[in-house]
Computed example of a mutant assay.
Amino acid sequence: MIVDDVPVNIKVARAYLANAGYSNFITVTDAENVQSVMEKESPDLLILDIMMPEISGLDILRDIRSDERFAYMPVLILTSAESRDIKREALELGTTDFLSKPIDPDELIPRVRNSLKLFEYQNNLEQQVRERTAALEKSRIDIIECLARAAEYRDNDTGRHVLRVSKYAGAIGRELGFSDVEIAELELAAKLHDIGKIAIPDAILHKPGSLTEQEFELIQMHCGAGKKIFESLSRTEMNGVLQHTTSGAALIQNCGSDLLDLASTIALTHHERWDGTGYPLGLSGDDIPIAGRITAVADVYDALSSKRVYKPAYPRERCFRIMEESRGSHFDPDVLDAFFNIREEIIRIQIDFADVD
């Protein structure tokens, strides 16, 4: 794209570039039209005159760089001005290079070519980064799914329990005003709420009758075990790994993450109760993290409405009644209200992700 208020200057620049093999041109002589033409055409490179009436090239450059779409597009400033202040301001605004008037083809052609090659390389690099980021995100989700299934297989009578709980939690979060990013993270982390069951003996986990006091104490340990699974290695543990392989450093460096921190919080606090009678910490009210309060509602509803080794699936209205009776004791009233506000969505999730024999 060539912008100059003098048509003959555009004609000369275009002729030189055409002789060098360039053919796809956009030309503008009215500076006021530059922004609208750019939005429509999305050029790969801009040759911009700096001294124009009404709107200067610097003003146009400032507007261009404020638009994320054109933040890195090459801009060659075309000017006869020798002012150091103008050049400094142009550089600060993000100009790529300067071209002197009158145009010298030996200067114009290589600078256009080099700027386009650099832009192409940058675009390719950004595409590779996007693809790598997408692959890493998929790997992260796959790992979460594998961990969730590992816990679920230990407690296989719950079927698709972790999936339903994650969907319920996301729906409640949405009703409470969570952002799309927060909802996505909450759904992933909630899948791991029972990861600590990996540490519970099968005889207790699958016991059809009532648990003894000692057995219930062991069940309660799954919250703390779930938190520990997500904790970063201690310095002593790190040193132990490093003694086995030099590549261990790359594997354990920065092993914490916001998602795993959230999963750890949910694993630890989803059995806390609003009135402080829950476990393992006995937290109450707003001291219980909101993610734990949300997952508590989602988890209990699914436990009530699903078949377990120790109970049949309860009818939906009985589940709702039991949960309403626990308002302000087991559950945060606001979170429970959000749950009941989306009753139809909860039922749809329950149907869509029902256990399959």
Rank of each mutant, 00 (worst) to 15 (best):
L17M: 03
I347A: 13
E41L: 04
L260I: 00
E41G: 04
K197W: 03
D258E: 08
A135K: 11
A90Q: 07
V356R: 10
Q35M: 06
D155V: 10
A303K: 13
L136A: 08
S36P: 04
G94I: 14
H330G: 09
D63C: 00
E215M: 15
C319V: 14
F98Q: 05
P43S: 02
G177T: 13
M51Y: 02
L76I: 09
E344N: 14
S306C: 02
M38E: 08
R130M: 15
F340K: 02
V28K: 12
Q220L: 14
V181N: 12
A150G: 06
I64C: 08
I141D: 09
L218A: 14
I2S: 08
K197T: 01
I143L: 08
G282W: 12
K228C: 05
E345S: 12
I141A: 08
Q127W: 15
L76N: 06
L336F: 10
P102L: 09
T158G: 06
D261Q: 01
E92L: 12
F331D: 06
P102V: 07
M1D: 03
H193V: 10
I172S: 08
R164E: 06
L17A: 03
S115R: 06
G159M: 10
P105C: 07
S139L: 07
P312R: 05
L58G: 09
I64W: 10
E145F: 05
T236V: 13
V129W: 12
D261S: 05
D299N: 14
D180E: 15
G224A: 04
D63K: 01
H161F: 11
H161G: 04
A150E: 07
Q35N: 00
L45C: 08
R65C: 11
C255N: 09
D357P: 10
I2R: 11
S284H: 06
D332P: 00
L58W: 11
H222P: 03
D4P: 13
L268M: 13
L45A: 08
I55Y: 04
E345V: 14
A18Q: 09
I349K: 05
A354S: 11
D30E: 15
A13V: 07
R132W: 04
Y168M: 03
I288C: 02
A267I: 12
D67C: 05
A148P: 13
D258I: 02
L108V: 08
G292M: 10
G173Q: 00
P110W: 12
E89R: 15
F98C: 04
A135C: 02
K138I: 02
M221D: 13
R235P: 06
L147R: 05
S80F: 01
I47Q: 06
S234H: 05
F331H: 10
G177C: 10
R149W: 14
D97F: 02
S166A: 15
G94P: 13
E344S: 14
V181Q: 08
D157I: 02
Y153H: 08
A267Q: 15
A303P: 00
D194I: 02
E187P: 03
L192S: 07
L186S: 04
G224W: 11
E145I: 05
V165R: 05
S36F: 03
P289I: 03
A71E: 15
A189C: 08
I143W: 10
T133S: 09
A148L: 11
S179E: 12
M1H: 09
V129A: 13
K87G: 00
L251P: 03
G196I: 13
F70Q: 13
I55L: 12
A135H: 12
T295A: 10
V335Y: 06
D155I: 09
D30V: 11
R132D: 00
